[in-house]
Structures are given as structure tokens and as C-alpha cells.
Computed example of a mutant assay.
Amino acid sequence: MPTQTGEDLIERILAHPGDADLVGPAANDLLSELYAGFPVQNLVRLLHSGDDRILPTAAWLLSELTDLAAPLVEELPPLLSHPIRSVRYDAVAAALVIADERHGPLIARVIELSHDPESGVRWKALEFLTEASIEQLEAGAACLPPGQLKDLTEWLIRQDGDEPDLTGIVHRLEDGDAVSRLFATAAAASLSDEQDTNLLEHAVMVEEEEIRSFAEERLNELRGSA
């Protein structure tokens, strides 16, 4: 059977939006085509199909393309606000890779997902806060309105300095609200290494499942590399 082209695969996804048995393999093949040089701009057809059954596939493809998705960075804002959880989740993953200091409003929207109603999306926002560059965080902070998220983002940025607020991190993990604990966990993950996992060990004791599971995952990675 001849290999399907990128155009054929897009048509297949558009024609069978509710059929996971057809769409899943087509999406995987399309990802390979995109890595092989099929222009990423063709994903706009999926992103703008108007069918919410197709949008999760399009968002997943963006998240898997890493920096190849950069030409479509302006497609991310509506995805970050979409009611489908997996779309928001994958949009955060894409933003981490392709948003930079020029995209402050976009990064601010990602930071705002730290209080998303879905635990899985908050987990992904926590990963963003942990992995984002200082330049990304600064750009996002500059576009946040005055309030808790702006204050916490600026506090998180300061933890990259020579004298991180270790006492403050522990205090936020133990006594802060859920959003404060999430930012403190990002700081704890950033500052922990194989020799010192004390901050992450505090984080695994919090009640929020997304924070606890994230901290456990980072601890396991550090212990595995020790």
C-alpha cells in the first residue's frame, strides 16, 4: 500500500473526526511527515476545522513538534482557553518550547492556568513554571495584572539568584494556599539535585495530587540519576 502524503493524512483526519482507530494512526503518520518536511502551516486546517473532535489531535501534534511548531505560535492563545482539557494541556507543552520573551501575553495565559479547574492542566502549568527560562517567566510576569500570580511569578524568578528563599519555599509548601504551593514546588524542583532533595521531599507531603505526583516524579528522576 503506498505511503499516504501529508495532504492525504489531513484529509483522513478531517473525514473521520470521531474514529480513534483511524485518526490515531493517521496523526502518528502525519507527525512523521511533518518531521520529514511537510510544512507545519498545513496544521491550520485542523486547528480551524471548527470541529472540537479534531482539535485535540491538532493540539497534540503541536505539542509533539517541539520547535518545528514555532510558525504556529499565534495559534496557541485560543487553545490555552479551550474548554477541552487535553487541548489546554497540549497547548502548555507547545508554549514551553516555542514561546519566548516576545510572547509575554501568551506566557501570562499559561501562568494563569496554575489555577485551572482541572488537576492535569495545573500539573502541566507546574511543569512550565519549573522548566521555563527566566526570560520566559519575566515576559509573562510583565503581562500579568497586579495580584497573587504576578507576585508569585516575580518571587519564583528571584529564586534563580545567588540567595534563594529556602525558608520561604518551605513556608509556602507547608502553609500557603494551593497556588502558592504550586509555585513553591516549581522553585523546589528547580533548586533540587541528586545531593539535596529536601525541598522536593516537603512537596510530596502536600495534599494537591498534581503537586504531589509532580514532586514524586522529580524525586524519582533525581534518585535514578544519583
Rank of each mutant, 00 (worst) to 15 (best):
S114V: 14
V110C: 09
E174A: 14
A215V: 07
E64D: 06
A99V: 05
S180K: 04
P105Y: 14
A108I: 01
L80P: 12
P77R: 03
D100P: 10
H103W: 10
L22S: 05
D8C: 01
T57S: 13
H115V: 11
A70N: 04
S63W: 08
D196S: 11
S63C: 09
V40L: 06
A226E: 13
R88Q: 11
L61H: 05
Q159K: 04
L152D: 03
I13S: 10
E118T: 12
S119D: 15
I111G: 06
I107Y: 11
A186Y: 12
V179S: 03
A58P: 07
D165W: 01
D177T: 04
L200F: 00
E11T: 15
A187D: 08
E138L: 14
Q159W: 02
P17I: 06
G104T: 07
Q4M: 14
A186N: 12
V110Q: 05
H202M: 05
L43I: 10
V97W: 04
S225H: 01
E174I: 10
T3W: 08
A186R: 12
A26L: 07
I157E: 03
D151K: 03
P83R: 02
E201V: 12
L106A: 07
L96S: 03
I13K: 10
A20G: 01
R85P: 00
A70R: 15
A99N: 13
S63T: 06
T3G: 03
E163H: 08
I10S: 07
L34W: 00
L149C: 05
E217P: 01
L222Q: 04
A93L: 11
N198W: 02
E217I: 00
L106E: 01
A132L: 07
A188N: 08
M205H: 10
L182I: 11
A58L: 08
N42S: 13
Y89N: 12
P83F: 01
D175T: 08
L43A: 07
P145W: 02
E127T: 13
G104Y: 00
I54L: 09
F128Y: 10
I107K: 12
V97S: 06
V40K: 04
H171W: 13
G50M: 08
D100Q: 10
D8I: 10
D196H: 11
R102V: 10
K124C: 07
A99W: 00
Y89W: 14
L182C: 12
D21V: 03
L152S: 08
E64W: 00
H103F: 08
S32H: 09
N42C: 05
L34Y: 01
E210W: 00
L199V: 10
L113P: 09
E210C: 12
D193L: 02
A91L: 11
L46G: 03
L173H: 06
E138D: 13
H16S: 14
L199S: 03
P17R: 06
G176P: 13
S225E: 14
A215K: 13
L106Y: 02
H202T: 00
S190N: 13
A187Q: 06
C143M: 09
D196E: 08
L55E: 06
I98F: 05
S119R: 14
Q148M: 09
D67Y: 08
I84L: 15
R212E: 13
L166G: 01
S225R: 01
A93S: 12
A187W: 04
G147M: 04
V23F: 04
V44M: 08
R218P: 00
V23Q: 01
Q136V: 11
E194Y: 07
A27Q: 11
L149M: 11
G18T: 09
E174C: 09
S180T: 13
N42K: 15
F38Y: 15
